[in-house]
Design a binder for these strands. Structure first.
Lengths: 196, 196
DNA sequence: CAGCTGACAGATATTGAAATCTGTCAGCTG
DNA sequence: CAGCTGACAGATTTCAATATCTGTCAGCTG
């Protein structure tokens, strides 16, 4: 609650870590830097996070959860058709990732590094997103709008088919001219493939 | 090694380069190595290729063209339906890339490096592949099997949607258990999206 | 005593000097 | 004379010495 809390908490460490990552980038950010920002010794940071990898994963998880939370609202918009929700959800995912990549490149690089290291935070993030997409597709099947023998498998296929527009490995292409049109074309193809 | 007292040709240099790339990998392969395999001075290699980058691009182009040639046969199989040809073509593309990645990892790494450097050889390769796919889809539209206002745009969308199964950036996932099933699911989704 | 410090060992990263490589070209060779 | 050689300059890579970092822990502090 206090604007300048004196006790060292996991939350304060995560905020300082984001700051350091933004300033120095993932390759140069050290635990000593984080401790310096907080005005404590680096030993204290290790009281809250067992390793540097755990700290990086925690800060990344926090960052990924922001996207998951943004998208979760679209899943349950009962007044819209499942097709519209699939479109909106994928468009929102693309927009969120693109915005993050452009606006927060240092942290985005960290996320990409962790994704490559197959960290648990990323694995969970992907499972969360797939779960959301599965719910929309299942609703579409129940409404008779979509055909999908196994909604989870189909959701995975939709996710893979649009990977180019949310996988961080393709981030450099997201701002290229024509990217938006290509997204629309893939989205159209995928939605047509879902329809009964 | 076998005595090679013949005249020095671009073709012989490309073969020696492949040999050196396979043995040392893309990071350690030098023009001096190539010259040593051929029993000439490295200055002679520069008579045929202006730069090392040009040499690497030429050897990569040769290698990429083998895939393009393999697939071109499927495009014109008039006795099969367009849908079958799209399925066969994408499956053959996936199989070819996967086979290369598993069987020739050093050269595959070189290809991946060049793809990242956005070399012209890769650009041309992608244009060739897209051209083949466009022809199949256009044939499908003309036969009334597919709906696609602009076959070239749709071909691009199909190519993007299946990127995970032919883009070298994903090579590490191609041998994972379940990869084949995921390919089938994406292929099913895409083909459904093409149908009228 | 709960939380923090700071020195320490082993691991990792940085640095700069030495080695190697790329690309050129004047001259050699057949 | 067409094609090749080998020495060379500048760029890049390697390597080992040095510095910094990670993770631990005995002891300090409030």
């Amino acid at each position: 609650m206090a604007p300048t809390p004196q006790t060292l908490t996991a939350e304060r460490i995560l905020e300082a870590t984001e700051e350091v990552l933004r300033r120095h980038g993932p390759a140069k950010a050290t635990v000593v830097d984080v401790a310096r920002v907080l005005g404590v010794s680096h030993g204290s940071v290790y009281r809250h996070f067992r390793t540097k990898a755990a700290l990086r994963e925690a800060v990344t998880k926090r960052w990924l959860d922001r996207t998951t939370d943004t998208l979760s609202g679209i899943v349950t918009e009962g007044d819209r058709t499942p097709e519209t929700r699939v479109r909106d959800w994928l468009a929102a995912l693309y927009a969120a990732k693109r915005h993050k990549a452009a606006g927060d490149p240092e942290l985005f690089a960290t996320y990409s590094v962790l994704a490559g290291e197959s960290g648990d935070a990323v694995h969970t993030h992907l499972a969360d997103l797939l779960g959301q997409l599965t719910r929309i597709i299942r609703a579409g099947v129940e409404a008779g709008d979509f055909t999908a023998p196994d909604p989870a498998t189909t959701a995975r296929a939709v996710f893979q088919a649009t990977a180019r527009f949310h996988d961080p490995g393709y981030a450099r292409d997201w701002e290229l001219p024509g990217a938006e049109e290509e997204f629309e074309a893939v989205l159209e193809l995928v939605v047509r493939g879902l329809r009964s």
